[in-house]
Design a protein around this nucleic acid. Structure first.
Length: 537
RNA sequence: GCGGGCGUAGCUCAAUGGUAGAGCGUCAGCCUUCCAAGCUGAAUGUUGACGGUUCGAGUCCGUUCGCCCGCUCCA
């Protein structure tokens, strides 16, 4: 209990700002196109960052595809890989619901700042208090009473429609209206000119609409569609509009039949994919947590409906354990089951694996989602494409669309979690901070140092370095004093340093300095590669 | 998208409207037989960008880009 609360306190002192600064300083993550002033929502991974990301990616691929865990009943699971195209036929995204699902144009009122769905505005205006009051004074197809309008603008209008031009700028608006009334005998024409009541400069009906709340003018309609659009082919028109994928999962469903026909897999089995995805987020925030270009590690596990529930529970637990196996502490991870009203209409269960990021602490933010998607996706693609996607089970003589369990993890978010988890302030050591990466994740696995740059030590170090670098990401550092070199490796999160000293020249032993404990032990120089292999796994 | 704050060396930050600096890092040399990031020295800036006011702008004004916080949004 004491340990836990102490650890939590340490966690609270981790500042995102400091983590970002270290990541820049040591070459983990840079702002994208920085020399041009950057671009909101995009990030570049530096030399250490890409090593870290590759290590996470490789671990996922190894543990999910090459060597998946045993299933809920101890059976061997079969999972195969895939790398589908980022751009697909645009009908894919109609079938998946991404085109229709999130493209409501929105408008904001310039006066009261309220946000409205554009297709609701007209109806809301007609129902609004101020419009009803106004239509009593100026019924359709009638010539209005200017005095009536003036009276309303100065009394009730101030309360019900303070943003309306007639209220904000009563005299000018009424002057305009008077001119119109004098210029025509047709009440219909006058009515058609009722825009003067609303226009900001008493000239036009606000092109983009009137605020139902206060009568102010609205901003133009803004599309909140999250998908990036581009065009396939040199000619730019709507006919060849295509989308950058907002998730990797759909590519898996598209190839379900291909994989089935070519890979000798039988349900239950999984298809896994790692790759970039793009979302035009309204508000990219929190470093690389919500960026517009990011990477996902997704797996669709196809199974019979009767097994889906059991497999769902299995995958939630398996994925949670996996993150822990990479050194993420239990207290910073949690499973959060979605409430019923949070679920998509087709989904029967969904759980997030959440991490306590410094910017969400003491709360948690999403890292991975495990969804029970039923057979919604295959059903959709079967209907929209006309292709037959059913699976035929020879043994049971049964044809069906498999249900699917989808563990979908953010690779970029995973890197962020590794960075946040590893960041460890330590006022007692020279670097004041070190990155406590799990050895399997560490961008640099080990460093090789001659204790001093003389007496043949550099030569021995060079030889050891050349041996190790054929297998591991290691660095050789000869310059400057040993403390400085240890400190540098602490900030890069290197778990082991091998140092050649005077004794090495006599008995072929080197010291291993352990990053977290600062402890040292001697091992034979010929055992270094074996030692590393054991530690890294 | 709205409101507020901010933008100076790789990082953290100084600099009354008057010659752009420090610490750390980096690099070089020295020292160093395990935490010594110690010593000496060097390189590094269109002060985010563009425009304006001024004899003179890092500083004041405008625009724009980016970052942070809060709203809004988050199939």
């Amino acid at each position: 209990m004491t340990d836990a609360s102490t650890a939590t306190e340490t966690k609270m002192t981790k500042s995102m700002e400091d983590i970002v600064a270290l990541c820049k300083r040591r070459g983990f993550i840079f702002p994208a196109s920085e020399i041009y002033g950057g671009i909101n929502g995009f990030w570049d991974f530096g030399p250490l960052g890409i090593e870290l990301k590759n290590n996470l990616r490789d671990a996922w691929w190894h543990d999910m595809v090459r060597c998946p865990p045993a299933g809920p009943d101890g059976e061997m699971l079969s999972i195969v890989g895939l790398d589908s195209s980022i751009i697909q036929n645009p009908k894919v995204w109609e079938a998946s619901g991404h085109v229709g699902g999130f493209n409501d144009p929105m408008q904001t009122c310039r006066q009261c700042k309220k946000l409205f769905r554009a297709d609701h505005v007209e109806e809301m205006v007609l129902e609004s208090e101020w419009y009803q009051e106004l239509s009593q004074i100026w019924p359709p197809k009638k010539i209005p009473s200017l005095d009536g309008l003036r009276h309303w603008a100065r009394k009730n209008g101030k309360k019900s429609a303070p943003g309306l031009a007639l209220v904000r700028d009563t005299n000018n608006v009424l002057q305009e209206l008077e001119k119109i009334i004098k210029s025509t005998d047709d009440p219909g024409d006058v009515w058609a000119s009722s825009n003067v009541l609303f226009g900001a400069d008493c000239q036009i009906w606000p092109q983009d609409g009137v605020c139902p709340n206060c009568g102010g003018d609205l901003t133009e309609q803004r599309d909140f569609n999250l998908m990036f659009e581009t065009h396939a082919g040199a000619v730019r028109d709507d006919a060849n509009k295509v989308y950058l994928r907002p998730e990797t999962a759909q590519g898996i469903f598209l190839n379900f039949k291909n994989v089935l026909d070519t890979s000798r897999v039988k349900v239950p089995f999984g298809i896994a994919q790692i790759g970039k995805a793009f979302r035009n987020e309204v508000t990219p925030r929190n470093y690389i947590f919500r960026s517009r270009e990011f990477e996902q590690m997704e797996m669709e596990f196809f199974c019979h409906e009767s097994e889906a529930k059991k497999l769902y529970e299995f995958w939630v637990q398996t994925r949670l354990d996996w993150w822990k196996s990479l050194g993420i502490s239990s207290e910073n991870l949690q499973r959060r089951d979605h409430d019923a009203d949070e679920l998509s209409h087709y989904s029967t269960a969904c759980a997030d694996i959440e991490y306590r990021y410094p910017f969400t602490a003491p709360g948690f933010g999403e890292l991975e989602g495990i969804a029970h998607r039923g057979n919604y996706d295959l059903t959709q693609h079967q209907e929209h494409s006309g292709a037959k996607l059913a699976y035929f089970d020879q043994e049971k003589n049964e044809r069906y669309l498999p249900h699917v369990i989808e563990p979908a993890a953010g690779l970029s978010r995973g890197v962020l979690v590794l960075l946040c988890e590893a960041y460890t302030p330590d006022p007692d050591r020279p670097s004041k901070v070190y990155m406590k990466f799990h050895p399997r994740m560490a961008p640099i696995k080990a460093a090789i140092f001659p204790l001093v740059a003389k007496e043949g030590m550099p030569e021995v170090a060079q030889k050891l370095y050349q041996e190790l670098r054929t297998k591991y990401a290691v660095q050789l550092d000869i310059k400057q004093n040993i403390g400085k070199r240890y400190a540098r490796m602490d900030e890069a999160g290197t778990p082991y340093c091998f140092t050649i000293d005077g004794q090495t020249l006599e008995d072929d032993t080197v010291t291993v300095r352990e990053r977290d404990t600062l402890s040292q032990e001697r091992i034979n120089i010929s055992q270094v590669a074996t030692y590393l292999a054991e530690q890294i796994g």
